[in-house]
Design a protein around this nucleic acid. Structure first.
Lengths: 137, 137
DNA sequence: CAGCATCCAATTAGATACTG
DNA sequence: CAGTATCTAATTGGATGCTG
């Protein structure tokens, strides 16, 4: 590791500190739609409409908003083909690909462990219910 | 891989589907405070007050709320020592440890790439500014 | 098709006061 | 110390209508 050109926070970024800029991008990444969008784009570029159908439940507003945010932060590219009707493709940048794997891992963990989580949740809720309502006998 | 006892969604969980339960835990994980809390607990148990000071900027309310949610989902343990004043320790469960590494990776990515992101953001904003205000000459 | 603008409902988060 | 409870401010998100 030689010298780098940008040392603003080199080696000093700490997301535990509220004022650290890394919190800004962590906020963007720590978002349900960001996780799913980056995961969907990891395999290659997709058109807006395809993305919207893939991310079941997302509204047009949220998808646009999420994509703009990711584009602004250099994680996603936006390519407009001036056809009629317009056609817009979104793809992952190299920077984006460097993080999409991490986000996909979280998504996959969720899919693999949801049953265990649901069991824990049910057990917790039942325990809580017994404590407030020890009446029955 | 033999048979498992819980097949509710075995092999079928898909976070892209709005109705898939995995979305529920993804929502919990895809949260700034969850990322930081799980990261902080990855190295070992911590007391409430220590956690609060470590996670700069978190309010007592948000910390309690986040910890309760993680405890409910089986990612975090809560141990109360009935001393005076009370002492409560939070630690990662085995399930929690299986995901905290993934979350820590996202946090670390943020710390390592924040400068690049900030540059991209500045460039994007400048471009946007020029487009609306081509006046100056 | 891929948006933007607007209005409004709902959720979330902060501040503050109080407790075992 | 480690909370709970409450009130309010701010943000988010959904629905709808319009446009190049």
């Amino acid at each position: 590791m030689g010298t780098t050109s940008d040392l603003r926070f080199f080696g000093g970024a700490d997301a535990y500190l509220a004022a650290c800029p890394s919190r800004q991008i962590l906020d963007v990444l720590a978002n349900k739609w960001t996780m799913l969008v980056m995961g969907a784009l990891a395999d290659g570029p997709l058109r807006f409409g395809v993305l919207r159908r893939k991310l079941d439940g997302i509204t047009q507003k949220m998808l646009t908003q999420t994509l703009r945010s990711l584009e602004r932060d250099g994680l996603v590219t936006r390519t407009v083909y001036p056809t009629i009707p317009p056609r817009v493709e979104y793809g992952s940048t190299e920077l984006g690909r460097s993080v999409s794997g991490l986000l996909a891992a979280v998504k996959e963990w969720s899919e693999h462990h949801i049953d265990t989580v649901l069991d824990a949740r049910a057990a917790y809720d039942e325990r809580a219910a017994q404590e407030v309502e020890p009446v029955t006998a």
